[in-house]
Every structure is written in C-alpha cells, then in structure tokens.
Nucleic acid binder design. Structure first.
Lengths: 218, 218
DNA sequence: ATATAAATTTAGACAAATCTAAAAATTGTT
DNA sequence: AACAATTTTTAGATTTGTCTAAATTTATAT
C-alpha cells in the first residue's frame, strides 16, 4: 500500500459521511488537491485491489477492507497527534502536517506500543475519537455550538475545522477542549452568538460557532 | 529532497569511511540493493543538486551540503531508535527498519523536541553517536574486540553489525552495552576468543569479535 | 425531447526511480 | 602495448502518480 493510495482511502472515508450514494470523482479530486482525471486513475487502481467498489460515473465506495485500512491510518494519525501534544510540547494547531507524515509509518508494534505509552487515549488533541485496535470508533455525543439555544450550556469537546487559523483563533479567545460554554444570546441578523467562557462574555461569529462542538449538559 | 535521494546520501556517507577517493558506483549500488545503472542515475541527479561531487568513472563524494544533509538524516535515525528502545519497549534488534522510515519525517521542531524529550542522548541503542543539532559527531574511543590482547579488559560500547541476527546472538550470550569484558585467551587457529562476561567464560568467534566494539580500560 | 452544461472518463504525455541490455571507459595481465 | 576482464555509463523500457486535452456520459433546463 503506497502513501498516495492510503491518502486516497482516507479522503474517501472522510467524504463518505457527506455523500451516502458513492463519493463523486470531483469531490475526491478536490479533497486530494488534484485533478479529476487523477482521481479516476487512482480510484480504478484501488478498485482493482478491492479496496474501493467502483462503477464508472457512479462514484466510489470503500469496501470493508478499504474502510478497515482507512480507519487504521486515521488511528495512527490521531495517536501521533496525541503524542506530539502530550509528550513533545506541540500545540494543537501544529500537529496536523507532521501527523500526515507519521500516519504512514508501517509497524503494528509501533502503534500498539505508542497507544500504550500514551495511556490509551480516547480522543486526539482536537477532540476526535481514536479508533481502537479493532477499528471501533466511539461516537462522541456532541453538537455544533451554532445549534444551541439561548440559555443552554455545555462543554467544548471538539472542533470541526482543524486548520491552524481556526485553532489559533480559539487560543486567542481562551477556548479549549473541556471549557464550559453557555449561550447568552443569539443575534438573528448574522447568527453570531454571545457566550460565556472563563467567566467572561465574548461574541463569536456564525462561522466559528459552526466549527465548535459542544456536549450539552443534560 | 525525496526519500530515495536521502537514502543515497546516507549510503554514500557511510561508504566514504571505506573509500577515501570517491565512492565507486558499484559500492553504492550494492549498499542500496540496486543495479549500478540506477546508482549512476541517482548520483547524477544528486550531482545536479550539488549534494554530490561527481566526475564520470571517478566515483562520488558528498559536498558539504550533501554531508550536512546525510548527518541530519543519521541524527534523526538514531534519535528515533533511542525513542523506540527507551520509551516504547523495543529491543535493539527491532528498531532499525522502523527508524529507516521515521528518519525521513520532515520537521525541525519534531526532532528538536524529541531530542529534548529523550534527555539529549549521546548514543543510540547500538552505541553509535548521535550527531548534535550542528552536525557534530562525538568520536567514541573504541576498538574491535578482535584486536585486543590476552589479559586486556574493557567495556562493551557498540556494535559494527546491527543486524538482528548478530544482536540476538549477543542477547543470547548476555552481552550488551556497558558490560565488562576481559580477554582470557586467543585461539590462533580460527582467531576465536575466550572472554569473561558476567563472571562467566564464553567463547566467541572471530566474526563476532570483529563486530563488537570495546572501550579499553587505561 | 433536445440542447446545453456539468461531471467523468479516456488517451497520451511527463517526471521519478527503477530495470535490462549494450556500449564505453578503466584496470589488470601478460 | 594489446587484449581481456571489470567497472561504469548510456539507451531505451517500465511503473507510479500525475497532468492536459479531448471524448463521453449524465444531469439540467427550456
């Protein structure tokens, strides 16, 4: 399995949550920052290896084997991100690119021992769940901040956008995983929110509120 | 800099200690497990990038830039090996192949932080010195066991052959870095040695004795 | 339903890294 | 010095992953 093949599998895996009926070639190409023709080529190659089920013009779907492999890569990615933050003093906005490289290192024992070394973490530094050895992914009960009502409160448990721009924006506003957040007001005009974090009221744009996951208090 | 280019640089670096007058194409090919024609191709490419000085039929020599880069890769390799042994419970015969992959990960900060996390180790699990950030390599005072005289003693400080076969042979005989070793007898017929390790006398072949480095007591 | 637009695939080309087979240069031997 | 053996290079082919441009299929809109 080459590096490029693994990256395509990962891309298709992520896109499958958006496209239920086969992931379009164009979507894959955009995700991979290549041209549709390149995506077609690769999808065909992965189809020959039975990692993707592919019918021309019908989009791509991971087979069971393809999905298993994609999840393994994601497990490695998230474990390495955890390592970088927990052990090597990286901040959550610095780890993605390095983990993109580390996720392709081939060694079952390495990842087993890394998991153990980290104390079997359940989530990565962005709140995303880390698949276990069997590929099971624990669904985290969460919703986007933007969908909460005035007066509701909860805990910040993840981000949708892991770009360093967004993560640094959160840092600047002292928002991090585990922080208590309460919706004080919703502005109808631009869908911005006034929220309480760290005993302080701040205003957050609709875009930001749509990329922040909250676990509501019951 | 591609993965393959880095591996060639490393190969030439290692071979330069054997060939002072330019490393022959065949030697590079053998080290890289490829054909001489492939080695020629790559040497030419590295010459164009001014990482290698190359004149047809005269062999290859690293330029200053090429040497710097090779040493950086070696630094990464040895730090990762240390990490695997010190933190992830790997034994010294299991780390080489994984470090061959990890050494190509690109991130200055990663390797800086890894070095710090490990407590700035001076040598890797096989006793090889770890280059510092500036590329300085501390020479370790050592000699091969085979060249010691009857009655002399010292401490095991490294191996020449890092193959798992040899390392496991050492494990079986309870020989590891830091162990005190005394030469009791030398057999002229086959150059085997009788040595004392762990208060016990064992016989070691000439081949083994030529791959074990000792620091003599003064 | 037919034309137009959009999405997708095909065909052919290219760079990287390799190979085989053949040619050229160097080295060794008498 | 000349021939053979060895080493090295060149030429041309192959695979992976990409591209552009053209052709084809599917979707949309009047």
């Amino acid at each position: 399995m080459t590096l490029s093949e693994e990256n395509y599998l990962k891309a298709v895996y992520h896109l499958e949550s958006t496209f239920s009926e086969g992931v379009p070639t164009n979507a894959i190409a955009e995700e991979m920052q290549t041209k549709p023709s390149s995506a077609t080529d690769m999808v065909k190659r992965l189809a020959e290896k039975e990692l993707i089920a592919y019918k021309p013009y019908q989009g791509a779907k991971l087979t069971k084997r393809g999905k298993n492999h994609a999840i393994k890569v994601i497990r490695k990615h998230r474990l390495w991100e955890s390592f970088l933050v927990e052990k090597l003093n990286f901040s959550w906005d610095e780890v993605h690119e390095i983990a993109e490289q580390l996720e392709h290192i081939k060694s079952e024992k390495l990842i087993y021992e890394l998991d153990k070394f980290l104390g079997y973490p359940k989530t990565d530094p962005h709140g995303d769940p880390i698949p276990d050895e069997e590929g099971n992914i624990e669904l985290i009960q969460k919703q986007v901040l933007a969908e909460m009502e005035k007066g509701e409160e909860g805990i910040c448990v993840g981000v949708n956008d892991s770009s360093s721009a967004f993560l640094q924006y959160l840092d600047k506003n002292n928002i991090s995983l585990g922080k208590k957040i309460k919706v004080i007001d919703k502005e109808e005009f631009d869908n911005s929110l006034v929220i309480t974090v760290n005993e302080e009221n701040i205003t957050i744009s609709s875009l930001a509120a749509n990329n922040l996951y909250i676990k509501k208090y019951k």
